[in-house]
Each structure stands twice: as C-alpha cells, then as structure tokens.
Design a binder for these strands. Structure first.
Lengths: 333, 333
DNA sequence: AGTGACGGCTTAAACGTTTAATTAACATCA
DNA sequence: TGATGTTAATTAAACGTTTAAGCCGTCACT
C-alpha cells in the first residue's frame, strides 16, 4: 500500500496543506503539537512524498543531466564523480548519458532530458556536433559545457582545462631535456582540446626557435590503439624522433607498448609524455610523465556553476579555464 | 515560451486527447489528416511533452537508479555502461549514485530514488549494509543486486560472477605452473565476493593436496595501496611465497610495484595473478594474468532483468552467475 | 466593547498529462 | 426508414503535490 499526502492528512486529522508544510520544513506557522502529530503518522506509515507530483507544481525536478561520450573511457569517471558529488550535496540527482561521440545520440539524449524536465545539463559535446540545434538554445534550460566548448550556441557556462598552456609546458619540458625532434601523436584533429594542444605544441616549438614540421604531426583518435599503430607507422616509415608528445595518456600507453615491441627503451631511446594523468599513468612501467588535468575538479566546478544558475545565484565567473600541471615521472629522460 | 499540450491542441484545432494520442503513437483511431496537422504544429512550435506530467497519470517514470560504491573505481565504469546501454535502448534513463560503501549514504540514495519514483533500482550493496531496511522490502519497487548479493531482504534478482570458480581456476593455474607457496592478498573480508574467492582459494589448495596456511591469507581493501603495503609487509616479515593471488587487479598492481621495489622480478621471482581484468590489466608491465569478470555483461544483464520485472515479463532466470575467464598474460611464469 | 493584527489552520485551484466514457457523424443493411 | 455498428473525435476526471487566499479565534490596545 502506498500512502499519499491525503492519507497522512486524514490519519493525522489535519489538511494536506499542513502535512505539506511540515514535511517541507515550512514549519514556522505550525504548532509544535501538530508538527509532532504529523511526523509520527508519517513515520508510522512510512510515508514517502512523491517528488514527481511536487515537480508538477514547483517546476523544479532537482535533477540534472550529464552527457559524456563514454563513462568507460578512463578520462570520464573522475569528471562524473565530481559532478555527482556536488550535485548530491545540493540535493540534485544526476542522469548519466553516454553518447559515444555520436551527434545523433547526443541529440536524442538532449531531447529526452528536456522531456524529463531536468533543471540543467552538463554537456561534453561530441566532436561532430552540428550547429543546427536551435531547439536547444530556445529551450531555456541552462547548459554548461564541460571539457569541450560548444560553439554552436551560447552556453550558460564553460569549464575546460588550459589545454594550450598544458601542451606548451609539456613540449617546453621535452625541449629543456634536450629533445630535438618531437613527434606529436594527436587525438582527433576536429576536437577542440586537440586543436588547442596542437597550438601549444607549435607555440612552444616556435618560442624555442625550433622548426615545426608537418610530417611530425600525426592525428588519429584518443585511443591506445592509435598510439600503438601511430608509433609503429612512424618508426617503420623511418621518421626520426627522440620523443613523443601524446595527445592523451591512452595514446602514450600505446606508444610505449610499440616502442618496447621494437626493442627500444623508454625513456633512454625515446621519451614519451602524455596528457590527462588518468589513474593508471603512475602505475605503468615506466611511470608516465604527463600533464595533469584536474578532472574531478572540472566536474565539481561545472556542477557548481550549473546549480548556481539553476538557483538564480550564478557565480560571477562562468568561464573557467582550470590549470593543468606537469607531473614528472620517469618516461622522459 | 514553453508550449503545453493544450497550446498545441488549440493551435491544431483539436482536443488534447487527440494530441496525446498522436504524440504517443496511439495512432490507430486517428485520421491521417489530423495526425499530419497535429504533427506539423508540434514541429512548428517545437513542442516537447512534459514526461513528469505523464508520469503522474501513468505511474511510470521510465527511470531507474544505479547505486554503486564509486564510479571512479575502475571496476564500475564498465558495469555502469552495460546498465545504461540496455536501459537507454528500452527508453529508460539512469540515475548515477555513488555511496563510497557507506551504508548511510546508500540509505539516503535509496530514499531519494523512491521519492523520485524510479521504476526500479540496481544496487551494488555496501559491504556494511544493515539488515534493518524494512522500508525497502515494503516499498514494492523492484531491486536487482549487482556484483554483491543482498542478504537483508529478498531482491527481485541477482547478477554476480562466479567468484568461487574464478578463484579456483586462478589458484589451480598457479599450482599447475609449479607454485608451491601461494600468498592470498584478499580484499575486505566482510565482502561477499572476497569470501567466495577465499573459498575458491581454499578449495583449489585442498583439491590439489596442499595445506592451507592461515598466515598466507592477508586481508585488506580492494586498493593498489593495500597490494603495495601488504606485499611489502609480507616480504619484510620473511614470509616465504613464490606467487601471489590477488583479490583484484588493483591489489595486483600494487603488489607488482612492491615486488619491483624490492629488486625482484615478476614473474621470474614472484608470479602474480589478479582478478577482474580491468582495462589496464593488459597494459601494465608485465601484462597481468588475471581472471576476467564480464563487467559490461553483468551490468547489461542486470538492466535486462530489472526492466523485465518492471514491464511485467520477468525473465525465468533471475539469479545469474556469470562465468569468469582466466586471461593468461605474462605475470605468471 | 470594538477594532485590528496575527497566528494557525483549511480550502481549492493549479501544474500538464492520459484515458475511460461519451458523443457525433456516417455507413450499412434489413 | 430506422436500427445498428463503426470510426474519429471530445469531455472531463484523475494523478499527488504546493501555495495563494481565506477563515476563524485569540489577544492587545484604545
């Protein structure tokens, strides 16, 4: 048997309005006596309020949507955790949506979330996002972009890490260690983070009076397989390089495997540097020198901004560019 | 401006009932003419139905809750992905909840999810779950237990992997490779999977006429740190062992680090075998021999069972014990 | 005593849908 | 012609809350 507020009201001998007020802690105009009476009935019958019905009238669902490419990609769990931690702290629940970077799926989720009346959305946009989502900016639901900016419309906020300066720092470090020929094994070239990292690579090289060579820039995907095959291809083609700047850690893992396969050593023969600092970066052999992105914090901050907007006290700064940090381990000589 | 079904009805010159039927594909008693008229208005005004309102009358939210200890623990993303994939295929959205193995948080989420009227819950119970949750079995919301059985009440279904036989196979394999002294670095001893794996360890030893020694069984937590410190302690205490059976892969990673630190080699000096086969298992050096749990499948199947129950066609078998598989790589000699 | 203010409670409308019951229009057929 | 059936639409109640507005009794003050 499921009890409603009416049942409780009847059993406690008061009106539903009164019950509503006590369970929502709008106590101030309620006698202690009636409050206790109501609460005891509530407990006795194990009444659980139907928040769906509340939402109907309050227009708030206390729910947000989190749209990411793939939770089983090691880059995203920390992000998601950050989002959920802040959200649940403020009483919000989080819908998890995986798009696999598919613009179509992304669109479907966006619609579904709107139908479910979420109060806001945190979106790591697919690389292929089209500019046609007029429906999105029309619906007045706040959206904050996470990890990847959205250029197709004005979002309520953006949280990214400083990919450009992170890459700049990584490449500068390689240069400072005496590297002369740095291969850049990039992720998908159409993704914004990739582009920024490429720019960082170029800037660092130029600032240190090194020539940028087109053939030293190879783009693929953010996967171990690409790191592996890309490295193999580079070696087999006779490309000369003393170090690899990898678009992310997964690529670096693949690169290290390929280098080992060729009977070469990391870092003695080839240095490798990654990007992200996912959990495994410190565990592989050799421990990976990499650029740490503050994933948990990025998730947390985006949640904070979004809920700030929802609750009408948006933070003054809604365009966060969080600092990366070079983590020096043993994969660079 | 947000349009409701009433607006659309008015604009299309029909009743709300008619609009409702066309958007829910209850077309069969609707003229093609009116259907088209309605649809054109729907598109023109970009109408998005309020599913919260629907839920009020249908008593279905098409939403499920997923309660796990921690999405940033590498064991869970694949599970979560499996759950979400099947759910979204069937039109359900998934709430993500992290408990950190805290019975209190778990309870809070359980209540919150009930209030949000989820149609069902998938629960990886905290190790410390108390038996007092009468409210849970009273609420008629279906729950399926994932990865860890729930003994405090009868759940709607259970999906686990065969921890006992997985451990048995791992230890038998070690024995077959000539190991004589197998250290068991267990996870938390109060967790069901840990207990089952311990039993598998014991059974394998006994079946092969080896003595089970209490000092060779060390329990801690499912973390890299424990694998590291446990191994160091074992070595420093002068415990003699030629191999380690680890409660999970994280423990194994820690063990390998400790072994290397001591100047010993894996697998030449000490063999290591893990459990789970998380994504990184094949990437570390040496690639880890381990027992694969079908995480994605576990998530997928639990979602299938839950939604089956929700939609009144529960699968005949709701107690799944999925097979593990020994993945042989290079960490055992 | 009459007036006003206030505290504590109730009434009832509203939120945006779905759906059972009903009606209206027409076709069919004896 | 009128009874009957069929089809395509409408009407209106219901889902479980919240909350503005109203009501009633009590108290303080003139």
């Amino acid at each position: 048997m499921k009890y409603t507020i009416k049942d409780i009201a009847r059993l406690a001998g008061v009106s539903t309005a009164t019950v509503s007020k006590v369970i929502n802690r709008k106590d101030h105009e309620i006698t202690e006596t009636t409050r206790k009476k109501v609460m005891s009935i509530v407990r006795q019958y194990n009444y659980v309020p139907n928040r769906i019905a509340s939402s109907m009238v309050t227009k708030k669902t206390h729910t947000i949507g989190l749209i990411i490419p793939d939770i089983s990609n090691p880059f995203f769990p920390e992000l998601a955790r950050g989002v959920e931690d802040y959200a649940s702290k403020l009483g919000y629940a989080v819908f998890l949506c995986n798009t696999d970077n598919d613009a179509q799926k992304e669109q479907t989720y966006l619609e579904k979330l709107q139908e479910k009346m979420v109060d806001g959305i945190i979106l790591t946009a697919s690389s292929h996002r089209r500019t046609n989502s007029k429906d999105l900016k029309e619906s007045n639901i706040p959206i904050v972009a996470l990890d990847r900016e959205i250029d197709s419309f004005k979002s309520g906020g953006t949280v990214i890490s400083d990919n450009l300066s992170g890459a700049y720092e990584a490449v500068s470090y390689l240069l400072s260690r005496g590297m002369k020929k740095i291969l850049y094994l990039a992720g998908p070239i159409n993704s914004k983070p990739s582009k920024d990292r490429l720019q960082g690579y170029i800037n660092a090289l130029e600032d240190h009076n090194h020539q940028v060579k087109q053939e030293m820039i190879l783009d693929g995907s953010f996967t171990l397989d690409w790191g592996y095959s890309g490295t193999l291809k580079a070696i087999d083609q006779g490309l000369e390089f003393d170090s690899i700047f990898c678009g992310n850690d997964m690529i670096a893992f693949g690169a290290i495997q390929a280098i080992k396969l060729k009977g070469l050593r990391v870092p003695q023969d080839i240095s490798v540097i990654g990007f992200d600092d996912i959990a495994m970066a410190g565990i592989i052999d050799p421990p990976l020198t990499t650029v740490k992105q503050p994933n948990y914090q990025m998730g947390y901050e985006s949640s904070k901004i979004l809920i700030g907007i929802i609750e009408k006290h948006p933070p003054e700064n809604r365009e966060l560019v969080l600092n990366t940090k070079l983590i020096i381990r043993d994969s660079v000589i």
